[in-house]
Every structure is written in C-alpha cells, then in structure tokens.
Design a protein around this nucleic acid. Sequence first.
DNA 1: GGCTTTTTGAAAATAATTTTCACTATCATT
DNA 2: AATGATAGTGAAAATTATTTTCAAAAAGCC
Lengths: 164, 164
Amino acid sequence: MTRGIPPGPPWLSKVLHGYGYRYTFPREAVLQALSDTREHLSAEDVYLIVHGRYPQIGLTTVYRALDLLVKIGVVVKFDFGDGRGRFELAFHPSAKGHHHHLVCTCCGRVVDYTDWLEKEKEFLQTTEKGLKQKYDFEITDHLIQFCGKCAECRNMTNKVKGGE
Amino acid sequence: MTRGIPPGPPWLSKVLHGYGYRYTFPREAVLQALSDTREHLSAEDVYLIVHGRYPQIGLTTVYRALDLLVKIGVVVKFDFGDGRGRFELAFHPSAKGHHHHLVCTCCGRVVDYTDWLEKEKEFLQTTEKGLKQKYDFEITDHLIQFCGKCAECRNMTNKVKGGE
DNA sequence: GGCTTTTTGAAAATAATTTTCACTATCATT
DNA sequence: AATGATAGTGAAAATTATTTTCAAAAAGCC
Ligand SMILES: [Zn+2]
Ligand SMILES: [Zn+2]
Ligand SMILES: [Zn+2]
Ligand SMILES: [Zn+2]
C-alpha cells in the first residue's frame, strides 16, 4: 500500500537525495507541520500535528525526522530553557528568514525579530573574524537571544504586589 | 554534630540572608566547587566534586543549591546543546567576568572569550533599546554564542577523509 | 537550649529523548 | 514492473536529566 506524498513542495526530495538520504512520507509530513505554523514547536507538538493528520506516524519517527532535518540544515533547533527542544524551519515560507529571539523569562513567550540586523552584521563580522584568528575556529553559526520581561508580565507583577 | 563551614569567602552567607534564604553547608560546598574550576560543570560534575569532598551531600541537594544560586544571580546556567545544564560562577575569582562562548559542534569543547566587547557593546545597546521600544520588553539579559569547528576537529576530518 | 521553619537526602516519580528490533518502504537495478 | 539490498519505521523498553515526596536534620530566632 503506497501512501502517496503529503501536499507540499517537492524540493525536500532533492535535498535529501543530495545528502544520500531517502525521501519518505514522515519526513515530508514533519516538514509540512513546520511550514504550516510560525510557532516554535516542540517535538511533541510536531508529533501531535503530524499524528493527527497521519495516525500511522509515531513519535520516534518524528524525533528522527527532526534530527535529520536539522542535520541537513532545513530545520533549526532552539532551546528556550524549558527543558525541551524547539524547532522551526530554517527558511520559512512566510518571509521569516534569519531572525533572533526575544524570550520572556516569566511567561515563556517568544518573539521573533529581524530588526537592527545591520548593527548586528557589523558586530558579527568583527567578532567572527577575531575568533577565527585568535582561537582558530571555523565559525559556522551563531546564537543570539535576549531575555526579558514582557509588558503583560510586568503588569501582572505590579498587580500582585499592589494587592498584598 | 556540626559540620563546620567549607573553606571560602563568607559573603555567600550575607547574600543568602539578604534574599531570606538560609546559609547552609551544601550551598557553600557547591559554590566552592564552582570557584575551584574554570570549566562549565554539569550538575553531576558538581555533585562528583562536592560528594567527593563531603560524602554526605546528595545529588538532589546539589541540583537545589545550583537552582538557588542561579536564582540569586551568583551562578549562571548555560545550555550547550548536549541535553544538560552547565553551570559557572557569575563572577569568577580568576578574573573571568562577563564572557561569551565559542562551542565546537564537533567535540563539544567550549572556549570562553572576552574579546571584541566594544563592538558587542555597541550592538547590544542599539538592539536592546530597539527591542524595548518596539516590543515593550524589559531586557534583562542576553545570550551570545558562536558555533564552529576547532582546529583539531578540522584536522581529524581531513585525516579521515584522506585515509579512505 | 528549645522552637519554628527551611533544608536535606534517599528513593520514587517524571519527562524528554534514544535505543532496540522485527517489519516495511525506498530506490537502484534488472 | 518485479527484485533485492539497504535505509527507515514504529511500538515498546531503556536511558538520562531533573523533580517530587516525605521523614529526619539543621538553621536561625527567642
Ligand atoms: Zn511574559
Ligand atoms: Zn523563531
Ligand atoms: Zn572540536
Ligand atoms: Zn563560560
């Protein structure tokens, strides 16, 4: 029984084959789930979506598909400190490309931002060049994230304080 | 049986009391373990050191002490993507203050660096100010980390490749 | 020293992720 | 289109880091 191919662009097939991996139904389905949202999904989130659509796909497979997609650079894995990995497309169809995260340490809300990238670029160039020379590392990636308290959480704290 | 106080500066007592917590032997011992190294220790690493010195101290207590020390800002917790938290003193006696990390994606080696901070400062100021205005977050912290391949790992890859 | 509350520690529980292994699907070759 | 070698899948079990539970011990205030 052939299961057919989930809806979506066929490029994943090419990318996988390019790396010597097979193009499979679950891998396409996991990619689809990530394409359909702008959220930062956990492995289980992805599983719930994928398994909801195609009940034959199991959690283990979702973990493996995510790992592979990360390895070939199609998906990026983040850690927002809540003890589980978060995944999102490296190049999101909704114009969400390279971006960084602003995380509320209070409620866990995550904002994707793409502002002030010129200043960042300057900083990155200087630093990466320096790191390469001084420590002889070939820099392949960077992780920039800001932590803070969102407006709502600041409000809530004030209310609680005031109510005492 | 009083256990005495492990060697070390007495300031932890004041800080803890300032926050309404008690000054205890295990907390001092955990702080000591972190002071004695420049490594980025996992909770279990800390436990091995502390339990080696003071066998009555258990792993649970080490976890709790680390959490507390992070909460009061004496210790900082990092995640280098290997599935466990890493801890280091916020202000290290060996002049290791605010710094960032350069992680080898291949062997996991972590380099602390404090170079090019002027450029970084510029970037941070611009970005933090912008984030505050645009997203109404009160920024409290940032996380900057570079990933790459260290010289040794690059060499090894070449050797393996050449050997085939 | 006695008292109240916080902290501790061993064991059990939890939660995310990985491993195992028999079965199945992919795809290069016929 | 059928074949077969190999990679991928899925359910269950295993592993790993961390948290919870709860009775006993220690801290700090009188
Ligand atoms: Zn918030
Ligand atoms: Zn994002
Ligand atoms: Zn390395
Ligand atoms: Zn460090």
